[in-house]
Amino acid sequence: MQPDEILSQISDLKTDSQQLDKTLEKYDLDELLEAEFNQIDKAFRQLEIQYQSLKNARRFLNNG
Rank of each mutant, 00 (worst) to 15 (best):
M1H: 13
M1R: 09
M1G: 14
Q2T: 13
Q2Y: 07
Q2W: 09
P3W: 04
P3V: 05
P3E: 06
D4C: 02
E5Y: 09
E5T: 12
I6V: 15
I6M: 06
I6H: 04
L7F: 15
L7K: 15
Q9K: 10
I10R: 05
I10G: 04
I10M: 12
S11G: 10
S11E: 10
D12F: 02
D12Y: 02
T15F: 05
T15Y: 07
D16W: 00
D16S: 00
D16A: 00
D16E: 00
S17Q: 15
S17I: 03
S17R: 10
Q18E: 10
Q19W: 05
Q19V: 09
D21V: 10
D21M: 05
D21H: 09
K22Y: 03
E25C: 00
E25H: 02
K26Q: 12
Y27E: 06
D28C: 01
L29N: 11
L29E: 13
E31A: 13
E31C: 04
E31R: 14
E31D: 07
L32I: 15
L32K: 14
L33M: 09
E34R: 14
E34Y: 07
E34D: 15
A35I: 05
A35F: 03
A35D: 11
E36F: 11
F37I: 10
N38F: 02
D41C: 02
K42T: 14
A43P: 02
A43Q: 07
A43F: 06
A43G: 08
F44K: 09
Q46C: 01
Q46N: 09
L47N: 11
E48T: 08
E48V: 00
Q50T: 13
Q50P: 00
Y51I: 08
Y51E: 04
Q52G: 03
Q52F: 04
Q52D: 09
S53M: 06
L54G: 15
L54H: 10
K55M: 01
N56Y: 00
A57S: 11
R59A: 00
F60G: 05
N62S: 05
N62D: 10
